[in-house]
Design a protein around this nucleic acid. Sequence first.
DNA 1: CGCTTTTGACCGGCGC
DNA 2: GCGCCGGTCAAAAGCG
Length: 528
Amino acid sequence: MDKGWCLTLENSDPVGFFTSKSDFGFDLSSRLYDKEGTATMFLTGREEQYASSPADERRVVLGEVDFFSDKNRPVKDMSVKKEDLHTARESDVNTGLQLVINTGSDQSTVDDGISSDVEDKRAKNELAKLKVELEGMNAENQRLRGMLSQVSSNYTALQMRLVGLMQQQKNSTAHDSTQEHEKQENGGATVPRQFLDLGLASEIDDPSNSSSEEKTTSGSPHKKIGRAESPESDSCGPNKIPKLNPSNPVDQSTEATMKKARVSVRARSEAPMISDGCQWRKYGQKMAKGNPCPRAYYRCTMAVGCPVRKQVQRCAEDRTILTTTYEGTHNHPLPPAAMALASTTSAAASMLLSGSMPSPDGLINPNFLARTLLPYSSNMATISASAPFPTVTLDLTHSPNPLQCQRVPPTQYQVPFLVHPQNFASVTNPQMPQVFGQALVNQSKFSGLQSSQNNIEQIQPPLHHQSFTNTLSAATAAITADPNFSAALAAAITSIMGGSRPDSGNATNNTTNVNTSTSNKSSSFMGN
DNA sequence: CGCTTTTGACCGGCGC
DNA sequence: GCGCCGGTCAAAAGCG
């Protein structure tokens, strides 16, 4: 085994050695050894036939020779050729194995002969290789199918659960007469309990009213949020949102919001930009306050006059996190890769718009809506009604942590303002205030960051279901776009599907000032 | 040469 | 009015 005879897998290091050699450099009774000296293959029988291959290599075909792998499995379709080096090659151990023996000398005088047989075997080998390749691809395909199936089944389960909870909510509403005190009439709709908790019921009930909390927050946001503390939130005061004149049609507000609505995507990426399938031209770069990383401004160049712009900035605390903020509507068709992200951001923007609509002044608690629409995915989406541009942030940087979901104390379900499953069901109740449905219809007019020719129609209730569906489908599509982004997005999806966790965050803040509590988080694209 | 990137200037909104 | 800040413009530089 130290005679310089070795067996190598194709394109790899030697994996075995011969103990001796005979006429053609090895003894057919020899054993093959791996590098550790462990016998891995046995050669038995004897050669009966010779054949020469094309001029540059000499091939010996061994007939009726049994080769056994270490599992005592016969290896068929063996052929052996002599070459100049002291190596042996084995390609495809599992199927049509070809053992290539190199004698290290040119003394071989093999007869010319059945070259067609050699060609056949070569073709067989080629076929075998292709088969292996195909099997590998099939395996990959199966794995991806499995993942998709898992996501799909999880979604179905969640949907079923939602239906059950809705039914439960409906029943409890019908039988609990005490809830009559909590009912607010709005076109015959039932105002969910959390609306009252959030002080929003009055807004829904009476457009002329706004909650005292909202007034306080809107009136002097900067007294609570210092500039240096949160640069983005500096301009994020809810009072800066284009307010809807109560006398104006709702659509006008929507149009105004559409123009300035932004979607921010946070994802881990070492690249300067996440690949979103579009072509961009950089037109500016600025140092943003509170962040040593410069903010780059890009304009879509896929079509002349496309108004879509995006800002790219690294997170100050974690520079592996890249925040990309999109604004505007593409005026051209998008390639599939771009559609993926565009759909994601569009769905997110739709959530944002739906969240900006219910209040007569165009305001509704953004945090509340984020939790309403994606109650189990607070890690993923944050909606900010921050001015000057309402922004929804898709945070794709969090890893799923199923255990965390189970650790949440049950008591947290009792915390007011949290949208626990029951409330979640209630806000998605078909009887929910019409304004939600209106928002949903309106949002279909918002092409967001998606091609105007490829808008996702989101006019079918229930609201959360549709947005969630779009987000899910878009996210699934986005997986194909970019490896880094895909990984982050996949993690985000998993956090949705696997995390049947009612949001436990910001409970305290929510009781006082949700906008404040979300300001830092929602300002993700600016200097956090 | 044409396109993209860089970078300082400029503009508008906002708070003081 | 002034300064700050975010955002954009446009000339210069870089690049293939």
